[in-house]
Amino acid sequence: MERVSRVLRHIVQRLISLVPVVLGVSVTVFLILQLTPGDPARLLAGQVPDPQVLENIRRELGLDQPIHIQYWNFLVGAVQGDLGTSFRSGRPVIDEIRTRLPFTLELAVVGMAIALLVGVTAGVLAAYKRNTLYDLLTMIGSLIFVSMPGFWVALLLMLAFSLELRWLPASGRGGPLWTVDGWRHVLLPAVTLSLSSAAILARLTRASMVEVLNQDYIKTARAKGVPNVVVVFKHTLKNALIPVITLAGIQFGDMLANTAIIETVFAWPGISRVGVQAISSRDFPMVQGVVLFVAIVFVLVNMLVDLLYVFLDPRIKYD
């Protein structure tokens, strides 16, 4: 009982601590954007930037206001759930995000599931069959995967599975995940996204497993004659998973943030691609919105990871 209420209190605390994080992120983005050369109005004005037109655009976008007023206006809007209007599309930022965030989440969740499934399985097996050919091959394989750039893998997979074999479509999102078409479309980008994470997770799982296997209590268990399989899967796995889960949380955040290139190559209608686009077009409200949302999702995911800690490792206390 006491433990549950502690965890609840911890959740509330973390939710409250989300506020300064989000505020910090938004101030930082705002400042970086202010330092960035390039005039949003100029980019909207077309090939011939008529001075009168530039002035009109700046006024309509509120860019003629002093910086602190601009930020204050943004903040007041944000508190009321209004993240402003995209300079580029003229649509509310919140709508732009609402249409795209689910697709990026979909991609990252499928990617993470693949990475965990493949990575942890391969890592555990490698630890179990330590110093065998399987172990060696898994570790070499993971090294190769981790050292290939995402866009390169993306192109190779596309050329192989879309062009040569014609199994999977080369771009776009099909339907929702409960449709065959949805899966056919998500598979290539998700696998591309998962590869390096799977490799990193496999290596860490193995390292962590080996470390735990070397602990005294495991040795004691072995000495007592507990079978190897039981030692590996029952006694070791749970403890070895703690660093793996931390890293998986971080990896998930990386995935969310770094889908940009994969979204571009596979023309996936997600949020990262629009974020990159927004930086190029100096679409300040859109950059703010994308960064804030990705940040919030990321923080929430990490909160979950921290909570999992408590269940996995009772030695860590919250107080």
């Binding site: 983005v29 990262s272 994308v290 990321f298």
Partner: peptide
């Protein structure tokens, strides 16, 4: 958290 929460490539 602030730094980490920043989407890497965008940062």
């Amino acid at each position: 958290d602030i730094l980490l929460a920043f989407p890497g490539i965008l940062l």
